[in-house]
Every structure is written in C-alpha cells, then in structure tokens.
C-alpha cells in the first residue's frame, strides 16, 4: 500500500475482510475455492454458482489467539444462505468447539435465506443457530461483525442478534425484513426503500447501537473491526467466560434483570416513534447525531447509559 488510508470494510470482499481481520498469513481456509463445492440447487436452476458458495470459512490467529472466522460474500446472491453456504457456517461453528478456538468471528453480509433454495436455506438457518448455541455453551464467544453492503437481514439478522457481541459500522444495517421486502409487502407509503436516509435511520448502525442491539459502533475500517473484535475476545478473560456462559452462573439473575429493565424502557417509548430521528429527539439529541463520528457517538451513548 502506498498510503495508510483506512481499508473499507464495506467495500472489501469477504476474502479481503478475513485477510485484514487476522494476523498476517495465519489464515487456513476450509473447503476453499479449489474444492469447488457449489450449490446443486442453483446448478439445477441453471443459475450462476460460486466456487465457495458465497462464504469463506477457516481458522487463523487474532492477536496470536486461535480463532475461527466465517465471512459471507455479499456480492454473490446478496450473501444469501443456501444449503452448502449454511452447512459451511454450521460446520465452522462446530469445528470451533473441536479445535478449542478462543472465539468465532462471524462477518455477516446477507439478505437472509436464498430464495432459490427455500426450505434447504431455512433449515440451514436453524442449524446455524443450534451450532452457535453449542459453541457458546462450550464457552466460545461468537462475535458478529456487520458492515457489508447487504447488512444483516432475515435469518442472518436473527443469527447476528444471538451472538455474544455485535460490532457494527455506521454503514452497516441490521433488521429482520429488509426495506425492499417491507415496501413490496406493505407499500411505499409504509416504507420507501429508495429513501436512503430513512433506511439508515431505521436499520443503520447508529440507531441499532442506540437501541442496544449492537455492542459498539465502528468506523468503516477493517483495522477498527479487528481491534474491536480482539478487545471483545480478550474481554472474555478465559474460556468459559462468554456472556452466555455467565448467563448460567450465579449472577444470572442480575443479568436477566438488567435485560428486562432495558426491554421495559424500550417498551415505554412513545408508540408514535417510527424513526431513528425521533428516538434521538426523545433522548434530547438533535441533528448533530448524524455527523458524529463513531468514537464520539459511542462516548455520547455511554455517558447516557451510565
């Protein structure tokens, strides 16, 4: 590189993300491109296939700790989950238990289930969830990284919320039904998916962090994601200290009560609030929110949460 310009997480391919997240040269891919394990369903429909079925899985080192990394490729069918794609993610999560990984980094960049594969894709999502719980039960924290062009929607939106930590960039998006789906089903009056400002005010990283659904807001910079993921990993001091694991420990009651208080506070919000802007107004924040950089924004929220 001829300059030290930040490398965009949003614009990088899944492979570049993996390369930038891990210690240099430490990545070993499982079922790599040369194996050509592609989707039989897409082939049957005569649709283009991809040599990795749109997901990169493998192991490597993060700050010299063994981690498993999973990265969806948003450029292939919108990162949608099919049978092979889902099996790779599930297998990687289970393999993390076997190799006693320190953490799993899950780069979600997906619109949800691949419609071409319908039931196989839906089953894949539930298998991913079970594998994720198994990893967590084995004390391995799973960290979601959301900052790709497709965001984390549909089944992968739910998977992202099951993780121990969810790191998101301002450009990242998180939701269940995507904007286009809502517009198609409910009409443009309900949700104008072409109003980019509206889409980000409702699904974007800032509002998700504000509502407590994301752990931390980050710059659109692979190095920032790496640093934050490493910090989350180190934060769970030893194996068996993932927050899920703590949920089963003696202070479980406190954890659950805190979560309950958070949900109650959210339920108490004015039901007329339909937009991120109104949430911030309700918190006494003005238009300055839009231009705050992530560090400033995290500080602002942390001060209020205290």
């Amino acid at each position: 590189m001829m300059t030290s310009a930040p490398q965009s997480f949003r614009e990088a391919s899944a492979r570049l993300r993996v390369q930038g997240l891990l210690d240099a040269g430490s990545f070993t891919e499982w079922l790599g491109p040369a194996r050509r394990i592609t989707s039989p369903h897409l082939a049957a429909l005569d649709a283009p296939v991809s040599f990795d079925d749109g997901v990169v899985v493998g192991q490597g080192l993060l700050e010299a700790q063994l981690v498993v990394v999973i990265a969806q490729e948003g450029l292939f069918n919108g990162g949608a989950v099919g049978e092979v794609h889902g099996a790779k993610i599930r297998g990687a999560l289970l393999r993390a238990i076997e190799v006693r990984a320190r953490a799993v980094l899950l780069c979600v960049d997906s619109g949800g289930v691949r419609l071409h594969e319908a039931n196989a894709g839906l089953i894949a999502i539930s298998e991913i969830m079970r594998a994720l719980f198994a990893a967590q039960a084995a004390g391995i924290p799973v960290i979601a990284l959301v900052g790709g062009t497709c965001g984390a929607f549909g089944g992968m939106g739910i998977v992202a919320r099951l993780c121990d930590a969810l790191l998101i960039s301002e450009e990242g998006r998180l939701g269940l039904s995507g904007p286009e789906v809502i517009e198609t089903v409910k009409g443009v009056e309900e949700f104008d998916s072409r109003d980019r400002a509206l889409v980000w005010r409702i699904t974007g990283g800032k509002i998700r962090r504000t509502l407590g659904e994301a752990t931390l807001l980050l710059d659109d910079d692979i190095a920032a994601f790496r640093a934050a993921a490493a910090k989350e990993m180190m934060g769970s001091k030893t194996m068996g200290d993932s927050p899920r694991q703590r949920g089963l420990s003696p202070d479980a009651l406190q954890t659950l009560e805190a979560a309950q208080r958070h949900l109650e506070a959210r339920a108490a919000l004015d039901p007329g609030i339909r937009d991120g802007q109104q949430v911030w107004q309700h918190m006494g924040l003005g238009e300055e929110v839009a231009l705050m950089d992530p560090a400033e924004f995290n500080r602002c929220l942390e001060a209020r949460e205290r």
Binding site: Q7, S8, E11, E170, E171, L291
Partner: peptide
C-alpha cells in the same frame, strides 16, 4: 493498488466530515 481505499472520501458523508 488501484482500489477505492485510495479515495480521500468514499461517501458524501466523508465529504461533509
């Protein structure tokens, strides 16, 4: 080396900043 990472701004918001 010709990647978008060389752009001093990658979005309108970067320009505002």
């Amino acid at each position: 080396d010709a990647t978008r990472d060389l752009l001093a701004a990658r979005s309108i918001k970067d320009l505002v900043r």
